[in-house]
């Protein structure tokens, strides 16, 4: 049980974020209205995805220096789980955009970059599937991953900032700092982010362990 404390922490944080996310006061803003509460659920999906991809690229680099098959397996399962969170982020963002911006996909630079980044990581999975030889597959996909990660960061955080974007945090739009003037939202937002990141790592960890069992038996 001592090893599992972070799983319990993740559960408590997520439950707290759901309950407090619905019941706490939020700033009153036109257009957004109560949908501002989506901040507690939509944004943590992306943060989780980025952290999972970060762990993945760390293990890809480790694989390249060690050649240990386990490092390669961790890298794959982190990406597999990260893609799920990326899709959740895209779909929740589309629902939110439909009711605040008037269209689910207003061809905004942030949205298009996010879609390209997701496709890039799907290409990682396709690349792995195209090779049968295990060592070659692990090595080539690790190199691909090392290149994909910085490109993903540029797509999500740099390119949208250089043009105009509807999405907060881009093109002169302030980030969520403008919403939480009373900083009450941070009380829910940060626990939600930490909780979802832990849940993402947990799911990826379980997928990695099942892979190990598959190999060993």
């Amino acid at each position: 049980m001592q090893k599992n404390w972070w799983k319990i922490l993740a559960s408590v944080l997520i439950l707290y974020s759901v309950i407090a996310g619905f019941l706490f006061e939020v700033p009153r803003l036109p257009i957004l209205h109560e949908s501002i509460r989506n901040l507690y659920f939509h944004v943590p999906m992306w943060f989780t995805m980025i952290v999972l991809y970060l762990i993945s690229v760390i293990y890809s680099i480790k694989y390249l220096s060690s050649g240990d098959e386990k490092h390669d397996l961790i890298a794959v399962e982190m990406v597999n789980t990260g893609i799920v969170f990326g899709f959740l982020g895209l779909v929740t963002g589309m629902i939110w955009a439909n009711f605040t911006w008037g269209s689910p996909w207003p061809n905004d630079p942030k949205l298009n970059s996010a879609a390209i980044a997701t496709l890039m990581y799907m290409a990682y999975i396709v690349l792995r599937g195209s090779m049968d030889e295990e060592q070659k597959r692990a090595k080539i996909s690790a190199v691909y991953n090392v290149f994909a990660f910085p490109v993903m960061l540029v797509l999500l955080f740099i390119l949208p900032r250089m043009t105009d974007s509807l999405h907060p945090g881009n093109g002169g739009n302030p980030g969520f700092n403008s919403y939480d003037l009373d900083s009450q939202m941070r009380l829910v937002f940060y626990p939600a982010v930490i909780g979802w990141i832990l849940i993402g790592v947990w799911i990826a960890n379980m997928r990695y362990r099942t892979r190990l069992i598959e190999i060993n038996s």
Partner: peptide, 20 residues
């Protein structure tokens, strides 16, 4: 609504613990 969502999340978490 909060109670319903809390139950759903709690159920999924218990499911995750069981899988683990």
């Amino acid at each position: 609504v909060v109670a319903v969502i809390a139950v759903i999340i709690l159920g999924m978490l218990i499911f995750l613990f069981g899988m683990d």
